[in-house]
Amino acid sequence: MSVIDIRGLTKTFGRTTALDQLDLSVAPGEVRGFLGPNGAGKSTTIRVLLGLLRADSGSVRLFGGDPWADAVPLHRRLAYVPGDVALWPGLTGGEIIDYLGRLRGTADRRRRDELIERFELDPHKKARTYSKGNRQKVALVAALASDAELYVLDEPTSGLDPLMEAVFTDEVRALRDQGRSVLLSSHILSEVEKLCDTVTIIRAGRVVEAGTLADLRHLTRTRVTAVVTGDPTAVLAQDGVHDPRTEDTAEGTRVTVDVDDAAMGAVLPALTGAGVVTLAATPPSLEDLFMRHYGDDLAALESEAAR
């Protein structure tokens, strides 16, 4: 049974459609990246999943239950870090961590102290004096110190410095090794690439891509850069070769092309035939995936700006 199973979720606010036929699933033990630009609907999806907002249509199951009707028993089994952490200004960080832990009832005191130390958080300070990053740490420690089956993390590192990000990465890896499920929403691609097995990419409330990282890489093109001594025309003419660029250098002609994975078998012999001197092939990063999906938005923006 899936930990999270969302199918055809639609949610509108007035005339705006925030979520449109969205699908999202997390299996037990899976770490799912949930990617999208600002305003894509990541936090709205999570709020529906937590029973804070009601779905307009579609089916939303959390541990097989209805998150709106059975919120309390379901929430016992998950821990949550909100995207924009708000705390009670008059309480200290330590008090808030304890309070949230007691609500759930599974907080481990030793683990709490260990996490406070790892994240270098001062638990004596009143919440009103914390910076954004420190507020985030409070929510992270409270969530990670609880013994949950599912961790829902909404852009959890957006206020953390790189050192603390590394600590966070470690902690999520530990959760993965223990077989916990994680839904990690982010717009930081490297973070998702480091931590997640599977990825769902959304834009304007719709899923534009979903699958394992390996699957998604399969769909993308590898960038091949080579210097050839002969005529590169045969290489450029292959099916599945995109965006060809050539440049004369001292050693010969530098050829840069993006190659569909399926066409690689035909491109390599063609390069050999043209007399290859140097060759570099770069695997697609999630960055490229992302740019492909949001690239048309960027292009539209740029052309608008040019006008």
Binding site: R47, L50, D84, L103
Partner: peptide
């Protein structure tokens, strides 16, 4: 937003 934090826990 502190209400969201509370209701995300097992609080009806």
């Amino acid at each position: 937003g502190t209400l969201e934090l509370t209701l995300a826990g097992p609080v009806g």
